[in-house]
Design a protein around this nucleic acid. Structure first.
Lengths: 189, 189
DNA sequence: TTTGTGACCAAAATGTCCAAATGGTCATTT
DNA sequence: AAATGACCATTTGGACATTTTGGTCACAAA
């Protein structure tokens, strides 16, 4: 089978299971049934491999979100469906937050660069969707970049931060409802 | 002068200057011109002393936020002013700034716990205000705790986080405007 | 010739001491 | 009765030894 794909699969499993630091290149090579050197023929180093995997996950989520959106539905319906779809990845998002937090002291510019990139990818994606509905006249003319940024931060707050200070995490329905009730509602004409 | 007050003053200065971990009980005793044992006749231990001091800061924060609120203003205006005032504490109060820094790169458990208390205090404060305006009939019947939480996180995102990924920070007017446009708007009857 | 590999290396992480520092106590002083 | 600081048990941090790990490359396999 394709060696690169084997490596990506193994690395994804390992990073998801043990986090970034606790995953070793030897481990990935072993799981992928590949020599360690082989990994380095496809990926420059561990950081780049991780980055590649994160980028793929984002691409997958973008795809899923896109699939769920139907042109003939209202903004509210599509926004709700897209949000619920994203909440299906909730555990992945929580894990990612954990890894980022775990690596907080590793304030290397490279790590920061990746985070910036991830944030930009998500915000851009959401911004485009918002702009489309503004053009359609379904929602008000707002600063779509700021709204996209707020949506991301609000989502992360309810999915990740809430658990830090509360021992019962919010259900998907509660998260969807509160965002629906505040941000989405504000955007309607 | 009152020995307890001397201790509190000395401890506040020391915590503000050096943070929690780097402040020693000997140091506090020396600054307060008091025997170390005396501290323990007023405060059970270092942690309790620290909490007492942060509690005083929280009380001050609440007071300042309360002072900013005027009954004849709209909910949006009051909420904005109060939240901005509380977030400003990071710049105006050395103790708060020091604590935030220490939580970020030392991860001191006591400091983490105390910061949770600060967050809880702010959210509770905002929640009470929301409830009052719900009763007044100015805003819709929403889950006030979740809305308060969202408001705090939204302001934190725009006031603090935005600068991390963008080199131009947002003006107070821009922040006020975007929150009005995305959250406050949905709350109005 | 091209692709894959694992022994090898420098660097980073982890473990091990041990002396210095620190939180907390309590017999003694005021 | 209130205050104190010498004292103690525990923790911390620094120096050093040991292990682990990311990354390389000479060599093997295809």
């Amino acid at each position: 089978m394709d060696r690169k794909q084997e490596i990506i699969t193994a690395a994804t499993r390992s990073f998801s299971l043990f986090g970034y630091k606790a995953t070793t290149m030897d481990q990935i090579a072993k799981i992928a049934n590949v020599g360690k050197g082989t990994i380095y023929t496809f990926f420059e180093n561990k950081e780049v491999l991780f980055q590649e995997i994160v980028l793929r996950m984002i691409a997958e989520m973008k795809q899923e979100a896109t699939n769920v959106i139907k042109e003939d539905r209202t903004f509210q319906e599509n926004a709700h469906l897209a949000l619920m779809k994203m909440l299906e990845f909730r555990e992945t998002h929580q894990l990612f937050a954990k890894i980022v937090d775990e690596e907080k002291d590793l304030r290397t510019p490279t790590v920061q660069q990746v985070l910036k990139q991830v944030e930009y990818a998500i915000v851009s994606f959401v911004k485009v969707k918002i702009d489309k509905y503004i053009e359609k006249g379904e929602i008000r003319q707002v600063n779509s970049e700021l709204v996209a940024y707020l949506l991301l931060k609000a989502y992360l707050a309810f999915v990740n931060d809430w658990n830090i200070t509360h021992d019962q995490s919010l259900s998907e329905e509660e998260i969807s409802h509160i965002i629906q009730d505040t941000i989405f509602r504000s955007l309607l004409i």
